[in-house]
């Protein structure tokens, strides 16, 4: 004890070392269930929204000004593109109608069956080391619950992690704690997409003989109980082997860093649905 009295800093460092051992990095439940977390999320909602709206307004005004330079030539190209796209759109809507009829015939469930709630990203993670989180301006009063999938028109973004009254935190698919059951769109090889904590994802649990090549598109399988089937996740950019399996590096289809508007899919995670059914059975 005399040693620690003489060198209190050493005692403090030792205490910190033991405290660090108690930090469970892969157990986030305590934080997400804490009422204090929800209070802080609610308290910061209006200021965050205010700053976000103001900064976006200034950026858009500036971009508008920059865009006006050399508009004429771009306009001509865009007009011809629109004509082509209209034609393509007509063909696609015909195909979609046909697709719907056939799906109905086969009794298929598609992601379109779920309603979506539009939301804006108002803030992001303040940490450089744990940066794969965004805050959106919709919360429990808009019907959001923990675990709801979040996407844009380009693909999967993540899932709702903490729900405040008016805002919520979304854990992105690139976060190291995120995992999504998925397919290779072309060959239907199945694997788990995990975030690597930076801008990339990794598809794991693929067998060595799996039919996967660079450029393949990866879509959700709908088997993890969170994400509906068939939403685009990303593209394979690299394949490498580890032990008996192979892994694929995936570039997410959504530019995670510049995501502004998102759609929350109004789909309750299946674990909650099951627990409600169990309650009914127990009653």
């Amino acid at each position: 004890m005399g040693f620690f009295r003489r060198y209190p800093l050493f005692a403090v460092l030792l205490m910190i070392f033991f405290l660090v051992q108690l930090v469970p990095l892969n157990n986030q439940d305590k934080l997400s269930k804490s009422k204090f977390s929800k209070v802080i999320l609610t308290l910061t909602y209006y200021p965050q929204r205010g700053v976000s709206v103001l900064s976006r307004f200034i950026v858009r005004k500036w971009e508008k000004y920059i865009d006006n330079v050399g508009h004429y030539e771009e306009n001509k190209v865009l007009k011809s593109n629109i004509a082509k796209l209209r034609e393509e759109n007509f063909r696609l809507s015909e195909t979609e109608l046909q697709n719907k009829r056939l799906r109905k015939l086969l009794n298929f469930r598609s992601e379109d069956e779920y309603e979506v709630i539009a939301a804006n990203s108002i803030a992001v993670s303040p940490s450089a080391i744990k940066s794969q989180v965004i805050i959106i301006d919709k919360g429990s009063r808009h019907g959001l619950i923990k675990g709801m999938p979040v996407k844009t028109h380009e693909g999967v973004v993540g899932k709702v992690y903490i729900v405040g009254k008016s805002s919520s935190e979304v854990l992105l698919i690139t976060d190291s704690l995120s995992a999504v059951d998925s397919y290779v769109q072309r060959s239907r090889e199945r694997g788990i997409i995990k975030g690597d904590g930076s801008k990339w994802c990794v598809m794991e649990y693929l067998e060595k003989a799996s039919d996967i090549i660079v450029g393949d598109k990866i879509v959700t399988s709908g088997k993890d109980g969170f994400f509906p089937k068939g939403i685009l996740l990303g593209t394979v950019v690299e394949i490498f082997s580890t032990g008996g399996n192979i892994k694929a590096k995936i570039r997410p289809n959504v530019d995670i860093n510049s995501v502004e508007e998102v759609l929350v899919i109004n789909k309750e995670p299946e674990e909650f649905v099951i627990s409600e059914q169990e309650v009914v059975v127990n009653e």
């Binding site: 986030q28 993670s125 704690l177």
Partner: peptide, 14 residues
């Protein structure tokens, strides 16, 4: 910071 970065409770606190 723990809350807004999706980190587990304690990383930034400690």
């Amino acid at each position: 910071i723990d809350l807004f970065s999706g980190a587990s409770l304690g990383l930034y606190v400690i």
